[in-house]
Design a binder for these strands. Structure first.
Lengths: 254, 254
DNA sequence: CCTCAGGAACTGGTCTGACCAGTGGACTTC
DNA sequence: GAAGTCCACTGGTCAGACCAGTTCCTGAGG
């Protein structure tokens, strides 16, 4: 039962890795906080006792991870950034684009996240929050004659309002990220067809159904309806064989 | 309603960014594939017309993102890696550890993910897969007298089996990552108390309940039970005020 | 007093060239 | 054919230089 050879390969510790670790540790222990500045590269060279190349390699990694941002000419040094979903988004996008997580999984994931967000929203909402959500629906209704771009923006605002009410920023971030990835994957197919008013009207109706469930405080209904809507909206982009796992997220009492 | 200024700040394009883009594009277009090798750094210098420092900074970023791996002395050059969830996991961990997503949100997220995974598993499982899940439960039963460490390993195996059956690697990855983060956050409080056999037995009973629902193919029940179990398991670590949003994921018909 | 041009004194981005400790393969030697 | 040596090459690190750009101080001119 115990693992036969729990040995890990001993990889050589590289200097720039050590520098990254030290900076990340300082962040985790709140010694460094977002908004603060790191010393300039040349100062870091002195502090770490490494060459500038090495320090720079560490900084580039941190920058690509969204931890800091360097700007040329800024005498204050690299800025420590607050978390943004950008880095997370980048990884998820890469996962989808380069490594072939298929569209069905992404949509399935969205159905899970969005459904849960709506259930939480239905059960946790205050009257003020309900009003805020209704306002975004009204915005959708008004932009339906303006154009797809504007309609889509109002759509995003709706989902963001829901996510806020659901009191869970993780669901919010993941849902937002996955939504972006899905859209980028089907953007070529979506471009022309989505401009039709009929489809926008259908989308609006879907959103109104969810709103109704949220207004009624009926969590399971909100989850069920939103999942069904997502399925209706996206299933057309999937080959039939890929739809089965999605169907498992729909229907019966849940 | 239209966005007032949809302009993005023009950031200077850095050379190493261009190199990263070129390599990532080659990956996305399948010109480069996992398992293949990149030219050596000095060859890349010639191909890109940039200095070695610049090329190296690009390679370090790619390496930190889990795209490639460089080994000193390897005459074949950097290796292009298949996707691993490591990079994604890193970002989620950072989100949680450094940027103060609180424990309640993490647990809530786990309830959502685990519940959904169990629902999918209940509905999609084959008989073989059911047998595999039953085997991990049997392993838990046998390790309960051995020690917490072994029991915990069997526990992980159970959840991994479920995730596999759910046919969704995204849920799998996220759930696994979040589980790790949660455990690391409460590890100080968990250390002593969890060693008790009574608690392990309770955990085993919880898992058996979920298994029963999966065996019966009852998706909603599997989701409901697993969420309830997670709540029972973790709520004790939360202040009472933080439990309310979690309760919204439980109870009635859902 | 305020304004504004000029100029240090920095910043990060890039380049060159060098050295080192390893690796792997070819080449010699037995 | 096997064993040992050697060399070309790898990535990791270093030192030093230059450039374009920012910030800020300073001093001249209003």
């Amino acid at each position: 039962m115990t693992s036969p050879a729990p040995f890990e390969p001993v990889r050589p510790v590289r200097l720039y890795q050590r520098i990254i670790e030290q900076i990340e540790d300082a962040l985790a222990s709140r010694t460094l906080r977002p908004g603060q500045r790191l010393p300039s590269e040349r100062q870091l060279v002195a502090q770490f006792g490494a060459s500038r190349s090495t320090v720079r390699e560490a900084l580039r990694v941190l920058e690509s991870n969204g931890v800091i941002r360097s700007r040329p000419g800024d005498p204050n040094g690299p800025e420590i950034l607050p978390f943004s979903s950008q880095a997370l988004s980048k990884q998820l996008t890469r996962l989808a684009r380069v490594d072939g997580v298929d569209l069905a999984e992404l949509i399935s994931f969205r159905m899970v996240l969005d459904g849960s967000a709506n259930m939480l929203a239905a059960r946790l909402r205050t009257d003020d929050e309900l009003a805020a959500i209704e306002a975004t629906i009204e915005a959708m209704r008004q932009t339906i004659d303006v154009g797809y771009q504007q309609f889509s923006e109002a759509d995003v605002a709706f989902h963001e309002a829901i996510a806020r009410v659901s009191r869970n920023s993780l669901i919010q971030v993941c849902n937002h990220v996955v939504r972006g990835v899905v859209l980028s994957l089907i953007s070529d197919k979506i471009a022309r067809s989505r401009n039709s008013k009929a489809l926008m009207r259908e989308s609006l109706r879907h959103h109104e159904e969810v709103l109704e469930a949220i207004r009624a405080g009926d969590g399971p209904a909100a989850a069920r309806i939103s999942r069904r809507n997502l399925y209706d909206y996206y299933a057309g982009y999937l080959p039939k064989a890929d739809r089965e796992p999605l169907l498992a997220l729909l229907d019966p009492t849940d």
